[in-house]
Computed example of a mutant assay.
Amino acid sequence: MSDLSPARSTDTRSGSGTDSGSGDADLRDARDGDDAAFSRLVAPLRPELHAYCYQLLGSAHDADDAVQDALLRAWRGLAGFEGRGSLRSWLYTVATRTCLDIVRGRSRRALPVDLGPAGERVVLDSAAPSTEVGWLGPYPDADLAGGPASPHARYERREAVELAFVAALQHLPGNQRAVLLLFDVLGFSAAEIADLLGTSATSVNSALARARRLLAARLPATTQQRTLRLIGDDRVRKLAAGFADALERHDTDALIALLTEDVTWSMPPLPHWYAGLPAVAEFAREVPMGRCPSWRTRIVSANGQPAVACYVGPDAAAPHAAWSITVLTLRGDRIAGLISFLDAAHVTRFGLPAVLP
């Protein structure tokens, strides 16, 4: 089956077919070479395709490239789509194979906790970014559709971009990642996935069972979405705002008061990470509070979790440059994990400026 062979599913989920009047007209025009009609056809599906590619690849930048490549392949091969299944299923066929090509060409993306034990002492002068690792990145979640794709999906869309979930996915072979996402997140049937991947339903069910076992061993008992619901929106906002405020005021004690006893803090692409309140408190005093003169912050949402965009400057009156997106993992009414993704490009991806004047 070639990359552009159409899926033959009988997908009847709302919005997944092409039999509406406007959809039929755009499809006819797109086949005649009208790229604007093709853009209209795929526009409603772009956000979910992008999230899917991110889940498979662990990088929003890679997801950008994968979606662009997949849609280009689809545009060039549109004549191969005969309408026997849904346009949505066909686009997922192309996107899946595009992503699997990328996965086969490189190692999995990781977080510092995947690479070694936590540091016992704060690393300062010898700290340097690791360029030998493909690092997991944060995901702007503003465009995510709410709720599962079907009543049979096991994970909500926002659960399926949580950092713990996406990090765990990176430990699966590419085909198992795809099968699990298509079935448990997007609600495709085993028969549809088999057709999409050019394999059998038996193989799909076997891959799904293996993926679920491996994932269960790596996932926390409670998802962040459930935790956030239990905490409540008001407390979640206060925790994120409290972290941002403590950072801006260089108030180490206020920041430490927000953390659990077993808190972790990592800063990819730096390979070092810290676990436990004493080590994390020492890191906070020595680095963000001790070595960074001035902070400004913006509250955002990343991976379905509260997050803070951080800007650093030489003093309070000077311009501040984008520095990181710090994603917060909550437990109870405290912060149990912080991952500071260090790169101005992460900040601007959230629609924020590179510099605050």
Rank of each mutant, 00 (worst) to 15 (best):
P271H: 11
G313Y: 03
W273G: 09
I256A: 09
T297K: 08
R296W: 00
R298I: 07
T252E: 12
E286C: 09
T260R: 00
E286D: 15
G276I: 07
E261S: 11
A257N: 14
A284V: 15
F283I: 05
P306M: 13
S294W: 05
V312C: 10
E261F: 01
P268G: 11
L247Y: 01
P271F: 07
A281V: 08
A302K: 12
Y274K: 06
E261H: 03
A321V: 11
C310A: 14
A257H: 06
W273N: 05
V308Y: 06
P306N: 11
I256C: 12
R296M: 05
W323T: 00
C292V: 15
A321S: 12
D251I: 04
I256S: 04
S266K: 02
N303M: 07
L270N: 11
A318G: 03
P314I: 01
V300C: 10
S324H: 01
A246Q: 03
H272C: 07
S324V: 08
G290S: 14
T326K: 01
W265C: 07
S301G: 13
D251V: 02
I325T: 03
A275H: 13
R291K: 07
V308F: 10
M289E: 06
A257W: 01
P269C: 10
D315G: 15
S324I: 02
R291F: 04
L259V: 03
I256E: 02
L247F: 05
T260H: 01
A316P: 13
I325Q: 05
R249Q: 15
A322G: 10
V287G: 12
V300S: 02
R285M: 05
P278G: 10
L259E: 02
W323Q: 07
L270S: 13
N303H: 05
L277Y: 02
D245Q: 15
T264A: 09
L277M: 07
G276R: 07
L277A: 14
C292M: 15
A309Q: 02
G304W: 02
W273E: 11
P293W: 12
D245W: 00
W323Y: 13
P268W: 03
P271D: 12
A281G: 13
I299A: 14
R285T: 11
D245G: 14
V300L: 08
P288F: 09
A279I: 09
W295E: 07
C292P: 00
D245I: 01
P268E: 13
C310G: 14
D253W: 00
G304S: 14
C310S: 14
R291V: 00
E286M: 12
W323H: 15
P306E: 14
Y311N: 04
N303S: 12
A257Q: 09
P319M: 09
A317F: 05
S324P: 10
G290W: 09
G290R: 10
V280R: 11
H272K: 00
A281N: 04
S301Q: 15
H250D: 01
A302V: 12
L277C: 03
T297D: 07
C310V: 10
A246G: 10
C292E: 06
E282Q: 15
L277G: 02
T252N: 09
E248H: 00
